[in-house]
Design a protein around this nucleic acid. Structure first.
Lengths: 224, 224
DNA sequence: CTTGACCATGACAATTTGTGACACGTACAA
DNA sequence: TTGTACGTGTCACAAATTGTCATGGTCAAG
């Protein structure tokens, strides 16, 4: 139940049934943002799991405890749990605490690598840092956020055929439904704002049976 | 009883018998690390005290209440309490929570002198110390405290898409309810004060389905 | 030239966001 | 205590954006 609630709210969840199970999940490679630990797990005691986790990782831990187990809760916090929640609890509260804990732990984090701040093509400049497009004459050309998203996907994948499926996936992380024409329409709208001749588009070419193709050479540029 | 217990454990305690009393203690100058607030106080309601405290201070608040219902807990947390303890509780647990809350609140604390006193963007200057915004021409632009809070969150997280959830969380430490539009309204009010063209905002962009995005480059500046 | 699949786009619907109006709580002054 | 001003959340409706559909155009193969 909690898994689906968290999933609905945009988290990826891996459930573990026991300490052993948890180890498996932790070891399986993916980065874990937060552990929610029920001390009432069968098998290895939750407190011991907590201590063990703390020994090898700084991952945030939220402990969920049953009623009337003051001692557990105290020991949990003293063992380095970041927060705890007595049962029964409101799912919404768990959500709020997970967010709070994750925010605290990611506070100092830097996004790795440096994304270029501007991409230029045929005189146009797409300022990624400002989410703003500038025409060759320097005038800003305002795009809706969907148009900007598509254009930045093209700029990051120039001279490549992108299928509707690819585009939809890169845009929304979802697969295309069979009759989905929404990409076509968005392309049409974007063309209106950057193409000179709509009857013979030069930037965004249609690839029949294939998808779309962004023709310009794109160069990363310093931002100024 | 609690006073002597806490004192025995190395804390300095100032007891207050009412909201009025608390104000007196808070005003008396000493730095307060944590407030333990019993909602069952006679006189001013604990929740109202909590709200009032939050309005003027970021001091950690632990609420103690007799009625251990979800609703109270959530209301308390939404009003900005940092933790919540149902009665009856074990003194040792209170101790653990006080320590946890204090650990959290000092965690992100900047050694004084390192926190930039001013942040500048596109000629504007946000004076963190005075909670005051100055336009490029040097004229002060007065912001309400909510507007200031949002703007400072943006200045601390520029060029990042912040969801309404993130913003609400950073503002009040609470999760967004489904129909919560308060962020939109606050953004709208803030835009009115800093954007030149409300129809095509340049500082705060909307990211549809995503949240908001603060475009300027922000530079910490010495204060003078 | 015809055919059938595919694509472009106007028109409209659904969804999401913007914002004026209002209500409520608080602060402050009279 | 009362009156006034202010800040902020909520609501309702307006505006903007995006998705869906239908129509007509385009293209390649035969």
């Amino acid at each position: 139940m909690m898994t689906s609630y968290m999933t609905d709210n945009g988290f990826e969840v891996a459930a573990a049934r026991s300490g052993r199970d948890l180890d498996r999940v932790m070891a399986s490679g993916g980065k874990i943002d937060c552990v929610i630990l029920d001390v009432g797990l069968p098998g290895e005691d939750g407190l011991s799991i907590c201590r063990r986790l703390r020994g090898k990782s700084t991952v945030p831990i939220i402990m969920v405890t049953g009623r009337g187990t003051d001692t557990d809760r105290i020991v949990g916090l003293e063992l380095g749990a970041d927060d705890y929640l007595p049962k029964p609890f409101n799912p919404r509260e768990l959500l709020a605490r997970v967010r709070a804990v994750m925010r605290r732990s990611t506070q100092g984090e830097q996004p790795p690598g440096e994304a270029p701040q501007s991409l230029t093509f045929e005189g146009w400049r797409l300022d990624m840092a400002r989410r703003q497009l500038f025409a060759p004459d320097g005038a800003p050309r305002s795009l809706t956020s969907g148009e900007f998203n598509i254009l930045s996907i093209f700029c990051q994948n120039p001279r490549k055929v992108l299928s509707r499926d690819d585009l939809l996936d890169l845009l929304h992380g979802r697969a295309a439904a069979v009759f989905d024409r929404s990409i076509d329409v968005q392309i049409s709208r974007l063309r209106r704002k950057i193409e000179i001749n709509l009857k013979d588009p030069s930037f965004i070419k249609t690839v029949r049976y294939g998808g779309y193709f962004f023709t310009p050479q794109v160069v990363a540029a310093a931002d100024n």
